[in-house]
Amino acid sequence: MDDLEFRRRLIAEPYDNDDDVKAATQGDNKRQQFAQEMQALDDKIASALNVDVPEDLANQLLLRQRFSEHQQRSEKRKWVFAMAASVTLVVTATFALWPKPHANLADYALAHVYHEPDTMLHLDENANLQQVNAKLAGYGAHISQASGRIFYANHCDFKGKRSLHMVMEQNGQRVTVFVVPHVDSFDDTPAEFADGHYHGQFYRHGQQGVVIIGNDSEVVESTSKTLADSIEWQSI
């Protein structure tokens, strides 16, 4: 290695420890001295580069990272919360809007009776069997004889289904009878039901259903028997 190359290498890299540099330095006082000078210069450069570092920089760095971590986490939390809210909304909307079978026919019939209390108390349209059968014909039914008076016989809306709402006399009491077509669109309805006030029975003939509601279970039972004897069904 000639002097020029030696100097170039040591100026570029004063602490060059390559074997050829070591070999070139060995036994040559001038070169050794030059190498030491360059290393001394490099130490000066290194110490000149060592500017003061703000004292609390490390703490600031840690603080900033914790802060951003916290922020990220709360953003993540916000995101999770938003997702949960949106899932909840979708589920709720699905349940609310999904076309599901109507509620149990018994519940609906009871609600209907409560909604029109007059029919079970004093309303009296004094319908005759002919009028009743004219209306029943639409449901494929015919009653051969009534056990008592017929106070009321009108079409009504039974959760979107046109049904016949009758109030008849049985054993001197008022009994409500609904004739409902297409009962399959309702949930399964128990054959007998009751709440604190009314008793009821339900039976079906094909697609048509009959709901009987009265104050007394025996009266309901006997109405059911009477109807069973007197009603005739045709297919509609």
Partner: peptide, 26 residues
Amino acid sequence: HKDIYRYAYWLCHDSSISQDLVQETF
């Protein structure tokens, strides 16, 4: 952090910019 700050300092010759750079870096 010290070496990174010093490196930053010699890139931009400004203490507060260096601190910002070091913050962003870390």
